[in-house]
Computed example of a mutant assay.
Amino acid sequence: MEPSGEPRSRSWLGELRGRAKELELLHRAMGFATLALVTLAPLLIVVAAADPLGHGGFALWLVDGMGLSGRSAAAVREVFTPPSRVVGTTSVWGAVLLAVFGLSFAASVQNGYERIWGLAAGPWHRVWRQLVWLVVLMAYLYLQVQTRSVLEGSYRIALSAGTGLLFFWWGPRFLLGRQVRWRELLPGAVTTVVCLGGLRVFSILVFTPLVVTNAVSYGAVGTVLVVESWFAGAGFVVYGGALFGRMVWEGVASRRA
């Protein structure tokens, strides 16, 4: 008699694949990457340029997030470093438009979480939740960069993992209007943080040399394409981690039942 664990494993993987297909995970990841580059990046550039500590701006955020160094880091800085007077030349209306664009990114993430948990779309007057989530996201990214110059090694990894766990645990709970309990969201937050660590390792091994190669072959466009690919990977991790976490919770709940 064959062990019962193997068919169950296959069935569970098949269920995960089916849900990912229903969610259109790959298309959502590509949409995440597009919105991140087109709507979120300009807002982060202005926010990073206003940093009173002057720790390198948005380009350093990208370099740190992707784990780049050397020539690859220099290529990204060359493309994404804004003019020194970017804040002074940004009008009030321009800042408002940037915030609106950022809200479209937050709305896309919220819609992804709603689809994962099978919830109806929230009413329009809950847009304030997207705004708060966006502000916390920028604060989270800013904190990640600040630890670069303060902590090193295992201390920084522990702090980054801890803050990441809190953000990806709180984020879905807040965007979904507290319709999903904290304990149900914890497996997804853990999965997301672990997979982001894996994405960072992958970026160091693959994207670091690829940035240099593309910068030489295609110039700034090649660098942007690599950054866009990394954003797609981040979107895959954010949505895929939440989806995987829901299935883990359902498995735990069914065993308890």
Rank of each mutant, 00 (worst) to 15 (best):
A234R: 13
L134K: 00
W61G: 06
G251Q: 03
Y113I: 10
F202I: 15
G88E: 11
L26E: 08
W93D: 08
C195A: 15
L103Y: 07
E78A: 11
F167I: 08
D51T: 04
V38E: 15
P209Q: 10
H125K: 15
S108G: 12
A59G: 00
S108K: 09
Q144K: 06
M247R: 11
P187C: 00
G56Y: 03
A220F: 07
L166N: 10
E15F: 07
A220H: 09
G164Q: 03
L53D: 12
L35K: 15
T89H: 01
G164K: 01
F236A: 14
A29Y: 00
V38D: 12
L159S: 00
V150R: 10
A257S: 12
S104M: 13
A33T: 05
E2N: 15
G112Q: 06
F32P: 07
L176P: 00
V136S: 03
R8L: 13
T147K: 07
V206Q: 04
V190R: 00
N111D: 15
L16Q: 02
G241D: 13
A49D: 02
R126W: 02
L166V: 14
M138K: 01
L137I: 14
T208L: 13
R148C: 06
S254F: 01
L98T: 07
G235P: 07
L196G: 08
T213D: 12
L68I: 15
G112L: 02
G153E: 13
F105D: 03
V63L: 05
